[in-house]
């Protein structure tokens, strides 16, 4: 069997061990990861989601009776693979803090106001060209006790499936020019400067909605395929 396989891009990814993030050393596995060649289970994956997306799931500002507090923003972009091919019909799930930097979660004890009109949760499917759009509120920065006076730069959490188990990604989108980048061990866990910067959205004047909302654009790149299906180990196994 000849299988398409997905390129490794270790350079762009944070390490397993990153002690600057204080909850990492007690959880990161101590033994080295075992390199696993991709087989059928890894090159397939769940193709689902359309049935999970409700009418207001891509507009986090209209999910309640009233309008949420804060700066309205549009976040738009494309989901691509490493070869620039758009990934259509794939589910994106997002969650974020409100304008004051507080999550709608019991465990969040940051003494900033909750907003009864903001849950901070969104979902959408990419269209045929791999495009997605969310309307939301600019999230606030929040303190998190990792080190003295630690603050997370403003961010939106993104979860994506792509088309294969191998492409699964959970990440965070950041905003340009955030003064908190320098002290954030999560952002800085990505050592390659080009990869680190690719987590930052661009201000997008063209997508801005006059008299209504600022806009940011952010493309997300999932792992690309190896150029030609390699002779897979599966062949050897069948011998």
């Amino acid at each position: 069997m000849r299988l398409p396989t997905y390129r490794r891009d270790e350079e762009s990814q944070p390490p397993v061990h990153w002690p600057d993030y204080v909850s990492n050393p007690g959880r990161a596995p101590k033994r080295p990861l075992v390199l696993m060649p991709q087989r059928l289970t890894e090159i397939t994956g769940p193709l689902l989601g359309a049935e999970r997306v409700g009418q207001h799931d891509n507009d986090l500002t209209v999910q309640h009776v009233g309008e949420p507090q804060g700066q309205r923003i549009v976040v738009t972009g494309r989901v691509l693979d490493g070869d620039g091919r758009p990934i259509p019909d794939t589910l994106l799930e997002i969650w974020q803090a409100n304008a004051s930097g507080r999550y709608h979660h019991n465990g969040d004890r940051h003494p900033a106001p909750l907003d009864p009109n903001f849950s901070g949760v969104g979902r959408c499917m990419t269209d045929a060209a791999g495009r997605y759009t969310f309307t939301t509120i600019q999230p606030g920065a929040y303190p998190w006790r990792n080190h003295h006076n630690a603050w997370r730069p403003a961010h939106i959490h993104f979860s994506l499936f792509g088309q294969a188990f191998t492409q699964r990604l959970i990440t965070q989108m950041y905003f340009p020019g955030d003064p908190l980048f320098g002290q954030d061990p999560i952002f800085n866990s990505v050592r390659d400067p080009k990869a680190r910067e690719s987590m930052i959205a661009s201000f997008d004047l063209d997508a801005t909605v006059p008299e209504w909302a600022l806009a940011y654009s952010w493309d997300i790149v999932l792992r690309g395929k190896n150029p030609t299906p390699l002779e897979n180990e599966e062949d050897e196994d069948d011998d």
Partner: peptide
């Protein structure tokens, strides 16, 4: 072949994913 794009970096799911995932 053109230069492959940089794969978007993974980041932690964090403590509060339970509101959305």
């Amino acid at each position: 072949m053109t230069e492959p794009l940089v794969t978007t970096s993974s980041q932690t799911v964090g403590p509060f994913f339970a509101i959305g995932l």
